[in-house]
Nucleic acid binder design. Structure first.
Lengths: 160, 160
DNA sequence: TGCAAAATGTAGCCTAGGGTACATTCGCTG
DNA sequence: CAGCGAATGTACCCTAGGCTACATTTTGCA
């Protein structure tokens, strides 16, 4: 009966051969990519919000960013310091916040992705309010390939 | 010429009236929801991975979880401690990891969402490998309403 | 059966991102 | 043009989630 019983190692090894699961390294790569996307989310959200504020009222102030992102001004100030270190924004003490060239590109990219995802969800039949919430979370995790397919879907829907 | 020039406060006030932007409170609510979803992502990812490992090899060990998530075993052990504190898993020193009832529910929910998003993207025409990556990031940010619409799309595609 | 390798755990470090409490500066208005 | 309220900044604290280096326990095999 001993030969019929798998050892722990054997069972662990069966894992590798399983058809149902992805290979561990494949899954690890996917999760690493997802994690690294997280780091860029804040930068994009801030860049997009700052661009919106500049367009709407001519300047981006920490307080307004805080109101829009639902955090305290302290969090904004600290994040802005990091974004400045990373070359996304420029600012001077007690002055408002500006995007660098890199920051503008980031904002444009964020807006583009955001708009496509939002429009796609609405074209698919999702209620606009729900689409607004969902697209905020989704936009950072959609590959360029999927974005293009989203756009194609939007175009086809439009001509129907 | 003074009357033609907006003060800073007036410009800030114009923000509120702008048609192009969401109301600050609305946008803040969306961002808060997106942030709170982040906290649950790890729990769901771990629960899903643990359930997969138990199904595939009869037990979930920290090392295997680490391999699948692409992190070190130390990170896994610390996260497992948190999950145990939160009632998602149970474990004893030097023993493997089990899901609680709550953990099993979490895993089922994660698998369900994951499967729907993955199948939806593939049905839409996204390459399976890309769909695997995108769905990992997206699944945590899709509302129930959108999920249902995804399912409807899958069903319709199937009968075509 | 004992030992080496593998798995697990501990200590300590880091960054990001959230908070409160308080200090400082700005800018509008009386 | 002084002062008050709003905006900004500082100090300090917290959690989550990464890491490396090292300690301890299991476990399977020679």
């Amino acid at each position: 009966m001993n030969s019929a019983k798998q050892t722990k190692r054997q069972r662990a090894a069966a894992n590798k051969a399983s058809q149902a699961l992805l290979r561990p390294e494949t899954q690890a790569r996917i999760h690493r990519k997802t994690r690294s996307a997280h780091g860029e989310e804040r930068s994009q959200d801030y860049a997009e919000t700052i661009a919106d504020l500049i367009d709407a009222c001519g300047e981006a102030r920490a307080t307004d960013i805080a109101k829009r992102l639902g955090v305290t001004h302290v969090t904004v100030i600290k994040t802005i310091a990091r974004l400045q270190r990373d070359g996304v924004v420029t600012t001077r003490p007690y002055r408002s916040i500006f995007l660098t060239e890199q920051g503008r590109k980031l904002a444009e990219e964020a807006r583009r992705r955001h708009a496509i995802v939002l429009e796609f969800l609405i074209a698919l039949g999702v209620k606009p309010e729900t689409a607004a919430t969902d697209s905020e979370g989704i936009e950072h995790h959609v590959s360029e390939e999927t974005l293009e397919i989203f756009q194609k879907f939007i175009r086809e829907k439009r001509t129907t």
